[in-house]
Design a protein around this nucleic acid. Structure first.
Lengths: 347, 347
DNA sequence: ATTTACTGGTGCAACGGTGCACTTAACCTA
DNA sequence: TAGGTTAAGTGCACCGTTGCACCAGTAAAT
């Protein structure tokens, strides 16, 4: 029913289990080439694969990292998960997937379970400003790479933060609209609490101020409630936002969306109202998900270089797991504005 | 650095490790309530969590299943992964994520690695007709639930297949177009090899035949090559398809796409050509991914009840892992046509 | 008074690898 | 020829849990 053991290999090759283990663990100089060959043949003939549980129990090491994302149903996180998994695979690591649904309790429970699975490295995509809920484990030796989150005072010293520069990204988006002549620009998002929302909002107001506009006068729509919202609902949220904004007395001519899903919802909302995206109202997103280019009109957006960021996240995590590096730091990747058809000159 | 062991708990509670183990493994009747309480207090005070590697080594059981998908960057698979992970979590199982990129070698390697990780249950979303590459492990005791694939002669007897009824789905899509008065309907897909492509194609031709049209005359576009294509490239493929189709002498008035990603690419291609989707050319997709509703125009498509299917996939897998059930079967879920704005009457 | 049954535990040998410490034999050197 | 060195390979304790087999003490049955 189950697998071949190292004992069976040893017996077939006429050596001791230690010799097989020596071969398997990079000590091949300790045996004659002929012995080595016999062992290798036994391994392939029996189809031997080491039992990882046993190995982990003995060494404490395990080639699995945890990935906690809000939801892989969101194409942004799905794409990130795929890239991270690729980077991990190249080094022989596997990825355990956890969807937190932006629920702190769930997130915490997951991380504790990963810890007791023996997993000592996690890429955490949390929208929570504080990491207090995971601090105890970090102190016990958990390596953490936080994605899409900037450093906060009180972060553990070993923490690595990787993310895009949200302030610059939102500035790029907003400036682009200002250059097109827009003056009444709205900022649309869901929850006010997340760190990246705060930063993107700052980039937005900074750009307005630079252009001599009063940020206090900016049109901001942030959902009706403080309730956590699903990662997909944000599209529906965008749709609702447009209804509200168009019903108001200061109708925007352009909208900066918190992300692409939201922007797609906004575009749908604009069409619901019988208006044309890019002509009547311009929309700019954030992330450059796969579908931004396929949307109609194709979405102007701020691109996050996800593949590079995922590779970097894994590489940082691995360095910490192997002890090559222990000191924390932040990496702020510069985003890029991708101009497509959802933005046009103000009428 | 690492964890609290059962010995430390035992010592703190003044009992033997066996007693702690008895409590942990559902044999609480074997001790006095007071003893039980002492142990429970020791556990929570020390923050004890059982070491899963040790437990797995001893029992052979592990609460992790493998999920092999083409790519979670594709929203369809991302959504499926999320639903599966939810179902698993509810029963205390974790999910290891593997992106095969539709590469048989990679798929095979993954499954072997999962096996040697001690994982004995896998949900496999493979587009390969044959499962020969995994048969040896299935015979050794691997439980397999194949998703989005119908049974083939030669399948292992324990195999469970779960998927949507592709034939009916494609029939629904095609009939809908026929009822709108379309006569020149094209079928667009990538690789010809996949099982679901074959089935959807059959549904397409069946519907044409039912309407008295000659399926031989059907317009079929299946990409230029037999090369494997990425799961996201399929959108680009759709775009190319439209260019080719419009350049031909038999321009279709409606298109049945192999899936929603492809349909979105087709819609983009139609707009590239300066035509309007739903008026000049109707498009119907398959899957009903989240973005189908957000697209412009919103996509008419065939919905797969993914949440239910994922729950069923997990439940079937669990039954096989626990030995509650061992016999294989197929489950063909009935899909539903969702009519939106990308289809309209033939001109 | 002895046997039987039950209650509330404990002892111990696995599970499959790992890698340090050790042996054995052959070869080298003065 | 004693002493040292090296090459090739082995012995063994240990990683943390588990659950069967066992045991001591008490109560009920004979």
């Amino acid at each position: 029913m189950t697998g071949v053991t190292i004992y069976q290999v040893a017996e077939a090759a006429g050596v001791s289990p230690s010799t097989v283990s020596n071969l398997l663990n990079g000590r091949p100089g300790r045996m004659l080439p002929q012995t080595r060959k016999r062992v290798e043949e036994a391994i392939s003939q029996l189809g031997y694969r080491p039992n990882r549980a046993a190995r982990q129990l003995r060494t404490g090491r395990i080639q699995v990292i945890g990935l906690v994302v809000p939801s892989v149903a969101n194409p942004f996180w799905g794409t990130f998960a795929r890239h991270l998994e690729h980077a991990a695979l190249a080094e022989g690591y596997h990825v355990l997937l956890c969807n937190s649904e932006r629920d702190p309790a769930r997130e915490r429970r997951y991380i504790e379970e990963l810890w007791s699975d023996g997993i000592r490295g996690i890429v955490l995509c949390s929208s929570l400003p504080s990491l207090e809920h995971v601090m105890p484990l970090v102190h016990q030796g958990l390596s953490l790479v936080a994605f899409d989150r900037t450093a906060q005072a009180g972060d553990p010293p070993s923490l690595v933060n990787i993310g895009v520069d949200n302030v610059i990204g939102a500035q790029l988006a907003t400036r682009h609209l200002l250059e097109l002549g827009h003056q009444r620009i709205a900022f649309v998002s869901g929850s006010v609490r997340s760190v990246n929302r705060r930063e993107r909002y700052r980039g937005f107001t900074d750009a307005l101020a630079d252009a001599g506009l009063d940020p206090q006068q900016a049109i901001v729509w942030s959902g009706a409630s403080e309730e956590p919202y699903g990662d997909l609902d944000v599209a529906g949220l965008g749709r609702t936002a447009v209804r509200d904004l168009l019903a108001g007395d200061r109708r925007p001519t352009a909208i900066v969306a918190i992300n692409d899903m939201c922007a797609l919802g906004i575009s749908a909302g604009i069409r619901d109202a019988g208006l044309e995206v890019g002509r009547d109202i311009s929309v700019v997103g954030f992330d450059d998900i796969v579908l931004a280019d396929l949307a109609s009109p194709a979405l102007t957006t701020v691109r996050q270089p996800l593949a590079d960021m995922a590779a970097e996240a894994f590489s940082q995590l691995r360095e910490r797991l192997t002890g090559e590096s222990t000191v924390g730091h932040s990496m702020l990747v510069r985003p890029e504005l991708i101009v497509r058809a959802s933005t046009g000159p103000a009428r």
